[in-house]
Write a protein that binds this DNA or RNA. Structure first.
Lengths: 227, 227
DNA sequence: AAGAAAAATGAACCATTGTTCATTTTATGA
DNA sequence: TCATAAAATGAACAATGGTTCATTTTTCTT
């Protein structure tokens, strides 16, 4: 699967994240019409990620957000009860979207070599699709409220464990060299993170996600794959 | 060279960073006795990195810093003129320390295989020695004042270029496979960054910097080294 | 088109936080 | 031991920024 194919298959507009936000927070969002709420929630999310990724969420003022979204202060507060609640909801909704797609993608492969390839590819494609949130999630992790912070840490470990498990399986079945799978998983994860943390650099070098994925693949397989 | 040997050879107490800060900022630091200034600057730097790495520099209040250092608000302001100036000085002084040691360490190797090993090892050892600052520098890069931000970006690119140059040299001299050296340098850098960005995780796994270095070495050489 | 419901507005409020400075405490040296 | 310089103090000030709500504007319905 190429990135173009991935986008076609898993394309879900950003608005679907806003829609779920609205449906799950009807009590606190004082807007009656779904269309209005979804449209504005999307604007707020995009603006928040844009500003926060430039100057940090703490440094982003509600006036900044008001300016960027074109909405008044009071209007913003009909969509969430506080700045912290905005952070919480944004994180929660994007995270649950990420988990859903990831689980949908993986698990149909069985051969460890193919499984590793699929896992790496899916992660890269997802982080490409949702780059602003991946970056945000990494950089703001320490500022997240408790529950969301724990989810972020758990998600990080889950990703690492997923890769580690594939490495272990590959070793047991004789496909991979018997290297330390924990260290290996950590390093592979670091390579995956580099893609969304250094997006600007990769863009400047004109490296596509497919080129990056192919290079990673070769790099990793040179060390692990037997024969 | 092991990490223990590196520490012995390049050990410079943190106070040397404070001392240089004092000597270069005598006009703004309203303290007459060097010993007093150096001691307190060190306390301030350590506390700042500690708090900022936990909650972010913007979220750190001067009252937090006063509490952590045990110094009064007024006292803090005899060591720098503003919170931003503290950030600037801290970054500038640590960065110049880092560059000095890095340049001292590298450049005596000529064979590209040895050179790559030395570069990786030195970077890991330095980031181990100055972990709080490395982490800080990565996470706060976007909040740094203009000059310091540019230095941080330049430093990042310089590290990548250094690695890339070694890869190119190795390819030209026939030691390395002809892989894309730019992509390779970026990925190696990502592996190096993982060491100081995920310090807690590595500590929990009881991985020493020497173990990590050895693993990286093998990983990278499996892909690049011929034969 | 008019009335009612929904949505948006932004000035005002107040807690927080960077910064200062008149005063107190500590260190120095004769 | 006392006088003076050095250093530290923390309450007070001013600006910033999150939050609210009485009012206005827009949208919908009949």
């Amino acid at each position: 699967m190429t990135f173009a194919e991935f986008q076609k298959k898993y394309y879900i507009s950003r608005q679907d994240i806003s829609r779920k936000t609205y449906l799950e927070n009807r009590k606190t969002i004082h807007i009656k019409k779904e269309a209005t709420a979804v449209k504005n929630l999307d604007i707020i999310y995009v603006a928040t990620l844009k500003i926060a990724n430039k100057k940090g969420f703490q440094s982003m003022t509600m006036r900044d957000l008001s300016c960027e979204t074109g909405m008044s202060m009071g209007s913003l507060y009909t969509y969430f009860t506080s700045k912290e609640e905005l952070l919480r909801t944004l994180q929660e909704q994007h995270y649950s979207f990420f988990v859903r797609i990831l689980e949908e993608c993986i698990a149909d492969e069985n051969n460890p070599v193919a499984k590793l390839r699929k896992a790496i590819l899916t992660h890269l494609y997802l982080s490409e699709t949702m780059q602003p949130w991946f970056y945000f999630s990494f950089m703001e992790a320490k500022n997240l409220p408790r529950t969301e912070k724990e989810k972020a840490v758990a998600s990080d470990l889950a990703t690492e464990k997923m890769i580690g498990d594939i490495l272990v399986q590959g070793q047991q079945e004789g496909f991979f060299h018997p290297h330390d799978s924990q260290l290996g998983a950590g390093i592979i994860q670091a390579m995956l993170q580099d893609w969304y943390l250094k997006r600007g650099k990769h863009a400047r070098k004109d490296v596509s996600v497919d080129q990056y994925a192919a290079y990673l693949q070769k790099f990793i397989e040179a060390f692990y794959l037997k024969g």
